[in-house]
């Protein structure tokens, strides 16, 4: 009986700790990881340089090309941003204000300015980096369409490749 209890406890503890972190973030707060890849690229381009959110000294930390890399063997200028780095960025943006993010997404992306990341990006709230996303520009459409669970990948691509404002 004692042995059975011990084995059961071990299994229970193992099962509780063995969940893949990816499973818990794929739908965190209703945010869609599958649609996040182009958004990550836009955020890296607009916000993730080594002297801004590509540093470890920011609460909102982005990793990938143009900024800090997760893999010690990689450089800021290459190779391309990895899936692990996109996962990291996904968790980073969710982690800023998870409750508000959940609400915004649940309401179809309505009033995205409730999120600090949107306000700071648009420059409507004090932001050391100033305005990095213009209201209604491709980067704004990219981010807000993702919050509405219908990411505009074309806008993200343009915001990632076009000359910075």
């Amino acid at each position: 009986m004692k042995r059975f209890l011990l084995v059961s406890m071990s299994i229970a503890i193992f099962a509780a700790c063995a969940g893949s972190p990816k499973q818990s973030t794929d739908s965190a707060g209703g945010a869609d990881r599958a649609q996040f890849t182009p958004v990550s690229g836009m955020l890296l381009r607009r916000c993730g340089s080594l002297d801004c959110h590509g540093r470890i000294y920011r609460n909102f930390r982005l990793v990938g090309v143009g900024g800090r890399r997760l893999d010690d063997k990689y450089y800021p200028d290459g190779p391309a941003t990895t899936e692990d780095e996109i996962d990291h960025n996904f968790q980073a943006i969710l982690g800023i204000e998870p409750e508000i993010m959940r609400t915004v997404i649940a309401e179809g992306g309505a009033n995205p300015q409730r999120l600090t990341v949107v306000r700071k990006g648009r420059g409507s709230e004090d932001h050391k980096g100033g305005q990095r996303i213009g209201l209604g520009d491709d980067a704004d459409i990219c981010l807000t369409s993702w919050l509405a669970s219908d990411v505009d990948s074309d806008a993200c691509a343009r915001a990632t490749t076009q000359r910075l404002p």
């Binding site: 381009r45 340089s49 080594l50 002297d51 801004c52 470890i56 143009g66 800090r68 890399r69 997760l70 893999d71 010690d72 063997k73 990689y74 450089y75 800021p76 200028d77 050391k128 980096g129 910075l164």
Partner: peptide, 25 residues
Amino acid sequence: MKTLVNGNGGCNFCHRGDGDSTHSP
């Protein structure tokens, strides 16, 4: 330079030696 200098005018703040995962070359 492909990216903008966003906040630190000291080039070697980001560009250091051969570079590594936290510095550009």
